[in-house]
């Protein structure tokens, strides 16, 4: 038995032990979706979030409650050369995603990396596009999938992934609702990401400013010259400049190796 098969077998055992994960969708959810007013409210709520984790959680919950046929949902995030799952409706999604990342193939990766706006899978047991991935997850109880590329005009963020336990679970309305949610999510994530970058930038700038101030006072030099000293220490020690600055601000010592 291959490593992938062993992993799938182990995952299938986990799934079998987690019966409640596969609870049926509520009647209320099924009857009210897709709800335009609810989708509009969700778009506004996502746009108002300034923290990425909160945006991801809202997106995942919205997918499960608003997309007809959806049992599970998750996010695939691209960060440089790596992929991760920052939010998922439950552990099964994370298990499935791990199989995609391990095999290097699957609907989510096709949407996120190959820039396919919508990937529709009617039945994983019959679909031949991702043989390694399908073989690995066939025992996990997921049959249908939708994967939407999360992108803005300037960047691909990742993918929004929807799962169902039954084959042919998704209708054209499901695809339409998912496309709307993915578009709103991408805009909200881009905005929240921008806010987080700015928060990080402000904190780092403050630390670097303190470090420069120490060096300026110590050596009677200008701010630009102090920055050059930090560059030298960073290059010499192969550490990031903000880490050098943080140490200097905390200890008064300039680490040069």
């Amino acid at each position: 038995m291959s490593r992938a098969q062993k992993g799938a077998s182990s995952d299938a055992a986990w799934v079998a032990s987690k019966g409640p994960v596969f609870t049926d969708r509520t009647t209320a959810q099924a009857e009210t979706r897709p709800d335009p007013d609810r989708l509009a409210a969700l778009a506004r709520q996502m746009g108002a979030e300034s923290h990425l984790d909160a945006v991801w959680d809202r997106v995942v919950q919205a997918c499960v409650t608003q997309i007809d046929g959806a049992d599970h949902a998750g996010i695939t995030l691209l960060t440089g050369d790596s992929v991760s799952t920052p939010a998922a409706s439950d552990e099964l999604v994370r298990i499935i995603d791990r199989h995609q990342y391990a095999t290097g193939e699957g609907p989510c990766l096709t949407a996120a990396i190959d820039h396919e706006a919508v990937v529709r899978v009617a039945d994983l047991t019959l679909d031949t596009r991702w043989p390694k991935f399908s073989a690995a997850v066939v025992g996990l109880g997921v049959r249908s999938m939708l994967a939407f590329q999360l992108y803005t005009d300037s960047d691909t963020i990742g993918g929004l992934n929807i799962y169902a336990r039954t084959p042919d679970a998704f209708s054209d309305d499901s695809v339409h609702t998912g496309t709307l949610l993915a578009a709103h999510a991408a805009v909200a994530v881009a905005a929240a990401s921008h806010s987080e970058h700015l928060r990080t930038a402000l904190a780092s700038r403050d630390t670097i400013g303190q470090a420069k101030g120490i060096l300026m006072e110590r050596y009677k030099i200008t701010a630009d010259q102090a920055f050059d000293l930090l560059i030298a220490a960073s290059q010499q020690t192969h550490r990031k400049l903000k880490d050098i600055a943080s140490d200097l601000a905390a200890t008064g010592e300039l680490t040069v190796g």
């Binding site: 030099i221 630009d224 010259q225 050059d228 000293l229 560059i231 220490a233």
Partner: peptide
């Protein structure tokens, strides 16, 4: 044109 003290260090 890094500051001379910095280039001496590095």
């Amino acid at each position: 044109n890094l500051f001379r003290l910095a280039t001496e260090r590095q």
